[in-house]
Nucleic acid binder design. Sequence first.
DNA 1: ATCCTTATTGCGACAAGGTCGCAGCAAGGA
DNA 2: TCCTTGCTGCGACCTTGTCGCAATAAGGAT
Lengths: 156, 156
Amino acid sequence: MKHLEKAAEQLAGHLAGGGLRLTRPRRAVLEAVMALDRHFEPAEIEKRAAAAGVHRASVYRILPVLEAAGIVRRVRDHPGRWHYEHVVGHQHHDHLVCERCGGVTEFASPAIESEQARQCRLHGFTETSHHFVIRGVCRQCRAGAAGRKEKTRGRR
Amino acid sequence: MKHLEKAAEQLAGHLAGGGLRLTRPRRAVLEAVMALDRHFEPAEIEKRAAAAGVHRASVYRILPVLEAAGIVRRVRDHPGRWHYEHVVGHQHHDHLVCERCGGVTEFASPAIESEQARQCRLHGFTETSHHFVIRGVCRQCRAGAAGRKEKTRGRR
DNA sequence: ATCCTTATTGCGACAAGGTCGCAGCAAGGA
DNA sequence: TCCTTGCTGCGACCTTGTCGCAATAAGGAT
Ligand SMILES: [Zn+2]
Ligand SMILES: [Zn+2]
Ligand SMILES: [Zn+2]
Ligand SMILES: [Zn+2]
């Protein structure tokens, strides 16, 4: 992934200007993070990092570093609960998730985005991101009564 | 709140038609739930219920009962993360979640709902439900520089 | 009012996510 | 190579949530 390099540079740059050090664990976590698609929870990174000999506690100390470096962003779902998302090179889209085959279809709707903005304005809310998932049955599954049982949904 | 009575009835009715029993713990949890605003996490109920002598494990077993009774609904914030919301006197709406204070604001937008339908039609997708959460900073938090009283949860 | 059946609870052990203090390790400038 | 000191591994500990099991108590029957 080209993104990895870009992120690596970004991290190095960030660390440089602060007397911080580019260590093996940090590099490992960076790679684990970039190997994932978009949204992820610390636990996922924890697992991958562990395989690289990085201790759990370190992962939780490194993730905030990546955030400070502008590589990922920490988002709160609810009080006391967080997850991360990539910041590097992703453009916005929302998802249609099939309940039968698990397939994920992405879609982008300017109409929805602008209506969203209007709603935020209406409530004096400053949006930083949103999560929109529509669940249901996809075309293929409805056509073939049986429903395909698999349809690659991004590697985990 | 008049809602409590209504909910109590609903619960009683639900239990009746199933050989289920209206117990003290269930009544306690029901009251704890109805005493709260609209959205809440199990932990909050757990605390209030504990004060009433209800064991933690019981709370987690009772909440699903209230859901089955149509009193609350389990809402997904993000993969693996849930919270509950009252169903009694509420109609469909989506959520604005503040990243600073964790506050949840509800909103309903016919425009978004219909655009959603259009997108589904466009992709031959049959919707069964959707989850739409906009994250950001609420009015109060942006106004008060420090943000509203952060509902700290065991974090130092 | 008392009995009985059995739905439900309390309990404690567990698993997973996450934080903290501390001593030893190592990045990287001198 | 040496040194400073930023980082890491470790392990103890806290919180949220689940489970099996024996004791308890609804609530219909008598
Ligand atoms: Zn499908
Ligand atoms: Zn996507
Ligand atoms: Zn709601
Ligand atoms: Zn707020």
